[in-house]
Design a binder for these strands. Structure first.
Lengths: 150, 150
DNA sequence: TTGCTTGCAAAAGGTTTGCATTAAG
DNA sequence: CTTAATGCAAACCTTTTGCAAGCAA
């Protein structure tokens, strides 16, 4: 995935838009808003959260449109879906490259982590299963510092 | 999790049942059926699948009961939930110890894998984030051999 | 102008809940 | 006996769909 190394939000935004244009996907106001929202977001919003936050600025936007746009971004590889146990909601994460999520079992907070040396099992798995590997996602469950105190 | 090393299905079954009894959880016919089903299952069934498969033998059992039992088994640590992208269904996996799932992006097949040397990032993550780590789950996405041919 | 995208509302899953009934211990 | 577990149906929540209208290219 070559389109996942950007130094700042502006770069990332421009890159997404130009990629979409190349593919003949139209750049609408709501689409721009969703892209920007995801790029600027530090955590992992759900469709509902995005909808609620953007509604004041885009009163006519519908929830279905948020879902439509998320779908496009996922298909184009700019966004990854995250799911948590005991929760039917889907969360969205801009820049879907290999990375590491740490999830608090108590409060549900999801923290991204830069794995210094995230070991790749790609070769081993490919050999053992014959799968053509596209992405690795390591999810770690635990209890966050705040919940440990409480 | 000490209760996750069994040489065969019978051991595992006996262990689950005795653990539940100790906790004062009643051993009903439907509960037994669900436990057995999960232990014998080679893949990762959904509640619906379990319900459909058990229905012939337990015609009066309801889907809600399957969910009830799955909830208990998850809470007691005998079963892990799995979720896939583009799919709102929850899948259940007996013996929720650290392991490795390989998911085919085309057909959705989920394969378990024994990682010879699944590297643990526990220490590193604990140091970086202060989280108390309870479980690691490595999910690998790819295309299975069958779908590669097609 | 063309047809992708939107907004709306209804429908479709999957899961949970409330409650009377049953049965495990 | 006691009360957890069951079965049923309705409710719930998230996500998807169908379609007429709007708008980007």
């Amino acid at each position: 995935m070559s389109h996942h190394t950007h130094h700042n939000h502006q770069d990332a935004y421009a890159h997404v838009v130009s990629h979409l244009k190349e593919k003949g996907i139209r750049i609408t106001e709501t689409r721009k808003a969703v892209i920007r929202y995801l790029i600027d977001s530090l955590d992992h919003p759900s469709a509902e959260m995005i909808y609620k936050d953007l509604r004041p600025s885009y009163p006519s936007m519908s929830l279905a449109t948020v879902y439509n746009n998320l779908k496009v971004l996922v298909e184009e590889g700019f966004v990854t879906e995250l799911k948590r146990n005991n929760d039917t909601t889907t969360y969205y994460d801009f820049m879907g490259h290999d990375h590491l999520n740490v999830i608090c079992e108590r409060c549900g907070k999801i923290t991204d982590l830069i794995a210094e040396n995230m070991p790749s099992l790609e070769a081993q798995v490919q050999a053992q299963t014959g799968y053509q590997i596209t992405k690795e996602l390591l999810t770690i469950y635990g209890v966050c510092p705040a919940c440990q105190s409480a």
